[in-house]
Computed example of a mutant assay.
Amino acid sequence: MLWNIDLTLVDVAIVTRDAYADAFRQVTGRPLVKLAPAKGRPDSEIIFETLAINGIVTGDEHLPRFIDALAGAFATKRRRIDKDGRAMPGAKEALKAVSRIDGVVQSVLTGTIKNNAMLKLRAFGLERYVDFEVGGYGEEVYPKASLLQVTQGRVRQMYGFRCDGSNTVLIGDSARDVQAARIAGASMIAVASGHSTTAELHEAGADVVLQDLTETSDLVAAVTHLTSPMDRTAG
């Protein structure tokens, strides 16, 4: 089980934008005028577009510098995360319910860089259900579908059982998440808690669309329908 983070499990947009502004000033020496929209994209893409639309000519050194600055800026604001952000309705109960399914490993497939992903979930007590070591993150410069396959390889290596499209489920809120799952051959549970509508998520090809995560029985039923015990644990 791979979870998207922003607008699927948490909403910390205000803190994230402030961290981007601090990182931008640190890297460029200039104030941030315009932040590129997320739209389900990884931080690596957002960073490059943000630099471009603010008139910064980018080089190979910009991405690692900006990622380090973004991690540092976000860490300084960690006490604001739960104050100015929120866990999405039903997020903790959903993670807990899925953790009880036999043979399930839960991790993340997120556009957020790893350090910030961990801080976002820890702020709301969600980290206990997630294996961060096998996840996919925004500093890894892969298309999201390729990053999904990278995480499958990490699960195979760490847990020693087969992990492929037949037993991988992505849970996310954007049509971009759905497209990544489709390309990678994984199943997709879409949650209409972000900027994509229910109709857009269906049209993109989601296997199941939920309004939110509050009905944990519906989520568990969807997971068990899309996988089987043999698929989840086979070596």
Rank of each mutant, 00 (worst) to 15 (best):
D218G: 01
A21E: 04
A180H: 00
Y129F: 15
I5Q: 04
I81K: 04
V141I: 12
N116G: 09
V10N: 02
G72K: 04
F66L: 12
G72S: 13
R162K: 10
L219E: 01
V150C: 00
T50H: 07
A221G: 09
T216L: 04
E45T: 11
E133M: 11
Y20Q: 07
S196R: 07
L219P: 02
H202K: 08
F132Y: 07
R79Y: 11
E133F: 14
E215Y: 00
G59W: 09
V134C: 05
I5Y: 03
R25N: 13
R17W: 11
D207G: 00
D43I: 05
A19R: 06
A38D: 14
R78P: 00
P42I: 14
R30V: 11
M118F: 10
R182H: 03
V208P: 05
C163S: 12
G103Y: 03
C163V: 08
F66D: 05
L210D: 03
E140Y: 06
A192Y: 14
L170V: 12
L63Y: 15
I81L: 08
W3T: 01
R17K: 14
E45Q: 11
L2A: 08
A19C: 00
K114W: 13
V150Y: 03
R156K: 15
E49S: 07
S174Q: 08
A222C: 04
H202D: 05
S193C: 14
F66S: 12
I171D: 00
I113G: 06
V104Y: 03
R100K: 06
V98A: 12
G160N: 11
V130W: 11
G160D: 09
L35E: 10
S146W: 02
G111P: 06
V155P: 02
G136E: 09
I101G: 04
G40Y: 14
A13N: 06
V169R: 00
M188T: 06
E61P: 03
H62R: 10
V178Q: 02
I47Y: 10
A186D: 07
T28Y: 13
A19I: 07
G59D: 15
